[in-house]
Design a protein around this nucleic acid. Sequence first.
DNA 1: CTGAAAGCGCTTACAG
DNA 2: CTGAAAGCGCTTACAG
Lengths: 359, 359
Amino acid sequence: MATPRPGATLGNIAKTLGVSVATVSNALSGKGRVSTDVIERVKAKAVELGYVPSQAGRALRTGRTGVFGLVLPDIANPLFPQIAQAIEFAASEAGYGVLIADSRGDVGMQTEAINRLIERAVDGIVIVPRRGTRIADIGCPVAVIDSPSTPGNTVSADHWQGGQAIGAHLVDLGHRRILLLGNNPASNVQNDRIGGMKSRFPAGVCSEVLWIEKHEQLHGKGSQLGLPDKVADGFTAFAAVSDLHALRALTELQRAGIGVPEQATVTGFDDLVWSSVVTPSLTTVGMDMALIADIAIAALVRRVEAGQRGDTTTRPPAGGAPSIDNRKVPMQLMIRQTSAPPPSARSIATRTPEGEHPC
Amino acid sequence: MATPRPGATLGNIAKTLGVSVATVSNALSGKGRVSTDVIERVKAKAVELGYVPSQAGRALRTGRTGVFGLVLPDIANPLFPQIAQAIEFAASEAGYGVLIADSRGDVGMQTEAINRLIERAVDGIVIVPRRGTRIADIGCPVAVIDSPSTPGNTVSADHWQGGQAIGAHLVDLGHRRILLLGNNPASNVQNDRIGGMKSRFPAGVCSEVLWIEKHEQLHGKGSQLGLPDKVADGFTAFAAVSDLHALRALTELQRAGIGVPEQATVTGFDDLVWSSVVTPSLTTVGMDMALIADIAIAALVRRVEAGQRGDTTTRPPAGGAPSIDNRKVPMQLMIRQTSAPPPSARSIATRTPEGEHPC
DNA sequence: CTGAAAGCGCTTACAG
DNA sequence: CTGAAAGCGCTTACAG
């Protein structure tokens, strides 16, 4: 047999070897009692014939497909590559495939996407929910990423702690007037990040939040944020809840001839792919997507392998195994070049007394 | 039946209705002759029971899974979201699911990834090949995206034409000394884009290519590209083969106090998500990923639905249906704010005689 | 127009 | 240690 026939089946192997399919199945899976001699001959023949187990047959028999679904709010999201890559890696390590579904930011399509996955009989679903969505009990193991407010089976980056890291960094640098850049006040993630940052601002620090979506409703999509004016007002640091907004801030400031970081500090969130290629490179906070993905996939695998199907988004597995309820993974501060002490701290005074800049 | 039991099967419906499963199957699929009366009752009962066809059963019987694989060289690639979203959309429109596989930039893993997909019995595979990879005949319908040099079954953006569009734009603006920014001279895509640009430069234009990977080997990863010096040398335009490099150029120039576009024009490629949020917004060339995805998926569907399996990467379908050989989809110039006439064209002379800037 | 039957490839008790 | 048999849910000729 020169070319391994792609169609080889357990039956083929059994016939050529003169044994039963049950024996071949057992030999290959190592389950029943089979003599080492037979095991060897079966394995050799399997390789020779290029045997590939039929997932369809196995799925039909076992009721498990070995596939997880991944539902994303919007694949076009710049954060998506990291998530998808990490999930795909963790899943394939665990022997599972990943079926993707894009909800295109629409709640209705999110439901449709989930249904499509269920029709394909996925063993579990990893959901990165659309902002503000609550995932209903869909009769299939679910792990939710990045929505700590959803009860149960959730894993996410610790956005609050990430915010604290950036907040502390800014304060340590000596900044006392800080503009926080958010996109939408309805986002839990953004509020956590902002809350974390603020929690590290001592009494003497004065901060304000600029919500970009609201700003654009007023001044038009893509309009300038007026950051140079803020610098004139005394703001020395611009802390965005996403690298995307940080990039916008950085270029807007640079465009106005304001030196970053000499005259203004800029920080982001997420460590997107280009954050280290811009000049100056962006100080940001990265999340450990690999760990997050591992946790989500491990939770799903545990449930599936415990033999449960059709059970529950919110309750922990019946076996009493630990769920991943609201598990938070620390974020990591990546100090690069867009953050530095404010001009005042360097030129005017060596130490900045608290409350020097009243709001 | 309040709660639709997720486990409902053809047999359940048949039994509750007192008909055969064959009839139920026919009624639902509309294939055999079934009386309208029975069809209605079957459909009603199916809805009532929340019947969801088992893909596993169907797959086992028909030999088709209704799933395509998507192999990507590196999911972390910033272009990936567009590709994945478009493929997922086109596939789900056609009734197919999409299983992802990341080859992480490694040729060996690309092969592994393809094998994993084949084990899952995908009906076809869309491959975005790793640079320089040739896809072997893998016994399963394949559509290749973005590698026009691969023979057969390839669809891609027309990188050459996209280059021409940018090249012409730059020349029309009056630029005569243009620095082309590429990453790697081994990339067909990049060479096509550069070739296209150059093809529109008349004799009087002097251009040069700066290969970033080579530059970084010499000066260290993430080092400055020395673009301000190039401006001093008389270069007025910087045309990158990717928005990523354009962003790098833009920030490096801005950082050096060089006004874009007043003192230097910057252009990119691909219209990545942030290209319109930077200040000034980036002139670039977008690709019609939706069309590319449609073509790739349609080609796969045609093959699958023609009933062929195990056939051929390189040969056209036996039925004589058109293959997608080296089909190219036009790219679209998106003129935004980083491109403008060179300073000389505005201040020194109204019209720039050809050959004014010798190389 | 409808039904009985075979079979896709696999795994799992159960007998030998 | 090994095999015969049942059955997962579906579709497809084939008979009635």
